[in-house]
Every structure is written in structure tokens, then in C-alpha cells.
């Protein structure tokens, strides 16, 4: 099989991993635009969400909550319920981390916040490792057979379609929230100009809580979807994706959630398509080369605005 005939298949894989990068990217971008720092703990919050889902799922199985696969999917009601609770709990955890740590450091420079987020990253990863160990844990042990799309010869699993659909739904929800709700508009206003937001009477503390809730929920979702795609999770799950997510955010224009979606897709597709030409191990390098080129050509990113 020649290289070019593999490209349509790789594009599909790119959209799937791009979906997960986009979700993570939106979260990183929102945190950056409202709190003003790059959150290095984001990847490990993804892993936290994935592990909370695992823990709850194990618990639900022991309570005999049914998990009969839904249609062609490899998981059922029990897992989805665990995922939804995990997303909520991760959002709460992230707000708590803010109360305990970031809130107290808010009046220092963004470098201090960024460095402390690396501390949070290491702490979270090691807590996960302490409870679950470094070995992989399987969400679903059954093997799903990929469906071949007739005519195109592209293979795709129902779970992968689920990942893309969940991403589309969440992107639409985040967009609607930012565009049409009062709190969403207040978030955009605070990102635009924090001092003016306070002068206007916007409760910026509430805006910050909402930012963490949405960022935490998106991180958990991205982590769980990555677990569904890979079938297993490790404490390193998010950290390994974080650099691709940062590349996506920089590519799209840091601080712009819509740019993160575009950037996530571009990085996801570029990483997958590159495997047709170079060994798979170089995927992260591809993300970085794109990021460096973008920084050289247009540092504000594809959809970025000048600050």
C-alpha cells in the first residue's frame, strides 16, 4: 500500500485526536485569558478526571449498576454515569485547588502562578500514582471491531465517532455559553479588560470560579475521551498530551478559545498524517515544529488578536 492511499485514514485519526486536543485547548485558553497564566497542571487535571471516572466506574460495577453496551459502543450506562459524575467532581476539585493555592498567589506575577501550576501538576500525578500505581488501567477490556466506510475504505470504530460527537456537542455548548449567557459575556469582558470589568461591577471572583468549573469539566472530559480512545489510562496520560495542547493553543492564538479548536484540529491531523512519512515516535516533534513556525511567522496565532 503506498503512502498517499493511507492519508484519508490518517485524516480521520487526526480528527479524533484533534477533538481531544481541542477540548483541552479550550480549557487552557480560557484559563489563560481570564487568569493570565499558562496552566501546566491542565494535563494532570485531565488524568485526574480519567481516574475519578475509573474509580466511580469500578464502584458502580461493584454496586451492580448495569453497563450493557449501548448499541455499537463498547460501554454502557454505568460508564457514562461514572464519567458525568467524574466531570462534576473534577470541576469541584479544580475550584478547590484555586481556593487553596492560586487564589492566594493571584496578586503576584503570572510567572509565580505558572511555576506553582507545575507543582500542582507533579502533586496530582503522584497522588494518582500513589493510589492506582504507574501501570495502565483498562476502562473497557473488550475489543471493538472497526467499521469500514464503504467506498472510502476508511476504518472507524463507533467509540471514535462518539468522541467526535461529544466534542462537537461541547464546543457548541461552550460557544453558546460564551455568546448568549450573562456569565459567558462577563467572562469575555473580564478576559478583555479585567480592571474595567471590576469598575463595571462585574463580580470577577465569580467569573474566575466559572472559568475553573468549565476548564475542569473540559479537562476531565478530554481525559476520559483519551481513555476511551486508548482503552487504558496511566497517570502520565494528560502530561503526555499537554505539550500538544499547548502547541494547539499557541497555533490558534493564545487566549482565544475558538483558536484552540482550530489549533487542536490542525495539530491532531498533522501529528497523525506525519506517521505516513516518519516514525510514530516523532509525533510530538511535529506539534513543536508547527508551534515554532507559528511563533516565528505570526506569534499571535491563526485567530489571535494583538494585545
Amino acid at each position: 500500500m503506498d503512502i498517499l492511499s493511507r492519508i484519508p485514514q490518517l485524516l480521520v485519526y487526526g480528527v479524533i485526536s484533534g477533538s481531544i486536543l481541542s477540548l483541552g485547548g479550550i480549557g487552557v485558553s480560557l484559563t489563560y485569558s481570564i487568569l493570565g497564566f499558562s496552566n501546566f497542571a491542565y494535563g494532570d487535571v485531565m488524568a485526574l478526571g480519567a481516574y475519578i471516572a475509573l474509580g466511580l466506574f469500578t464502584l458502580f460495577v461493584s454496586w451492580s449498576i448495569p453497563n450493557i453496551p449501548l448499541g455499537p459502543l463498547s460501554f454502557g450506562f454505568g460508564f457514562i454515569l461514572a464519567a458525568i459524575f467524574a466531570i462534576g467532581l473534577t470541576a469541584v476539585a479544580v475550584v478547590l485547588i484555586d481556593r487553596i493555592l492560586f487564589k492566594r498567589l493571584r496578586h503576584y506575577s503570572s510567572v509565580i502562578l505558572m511555576m506553582s501550576s507545575i507543582g500542582v501538576a507533579l502533586a496530582l500525578r503522584n497522588i494518582l500514582q500513589f493510589f492506582w500505581g504507574p501501570q495502565p488501567h483498562y476502562y473497557i477490556e473488550r475489543i471493538q471491531i472497526a467499521t469500514v466506510i464503504p467506498g472510502l475504505g476508511i476504518r472507524i470504530k463507533p467509540d471514535q465517532v462518539f468522541i467526535v460527537l461529544v466534542t462537537i456537542v461541547l464546543v457548541v455548548l461552550v460557544h453558546a455559553f460564551l455568546k448568549y449567557t450573562k456569565m459567558g459575556k462577563a467572562m469575555r469582558a473580564t478576559a478583555d479588560n479585567n480592571a474595567l470589568a471590576r469598575v463595571t461591577g462585574i463580580n470577577t471572583n465569580r467569573v474566575i470560579v466559572w472559568t475553573w468549573v468549565i476548564g475542569g469539566a473540559l479537562a476531565a472530559t478530554a481525559g476520559i475521551l483519551a481513555g476511551i480512545e486508548n482503552k487504558f489510562i496511566t497517570p502520565e496520560l494528560g502530561w503526555q498530551m499537554l505539550l500538544s495542547i499547548f502547541a494547539a493553543v499557541v497555533l490558534g492564538g493564545i487566549g482565544n478559545p475558538y483558536g484552540a479548536i482550530v489549533g487542536g484540529m490542525v495539530i491532531g491531523i498533522a501529528e497523525e498524517v506525519s506517521t505516513a512519512f516518519i516514525p510514530t515516535g516523532y509525533k510530538p516533534a511535529v506539534a513543536f515544529i508547527i508551534m515554532i513556525l507559528m511563533l516565528l511567522v505570526k506569534p499571535t496565532g491563526l485567530l489571535g488578536k494583538r494585545r
Partner: peptide, 25 residues
């Protein structure tokens, strides 16, 4: 009400949204 000299608007918001933010409370 206070109108600062510079950076006194939310640039990425529409006119309507800027005014709406004025009524946030």
C-alpha cells in the same frame, strides 16, 4: 459611574454586549 481615559471598553464584545455588561449587577 466611571469612564477611564484609556481601555474603557471591552473590545471583543459588541456595542450591545458592552452596554449589557454595564448593567451586570
Amino acid at each position: 459611574g466611571y469612564v477611564p481615559q484609556v481601555e474603557n471598553i471591552f473590545p471583543s464584545l459588541t456595542v450591545h454586549e458592552n452596554l449589557e455588561m454595564g448593567a451586570f449587577i
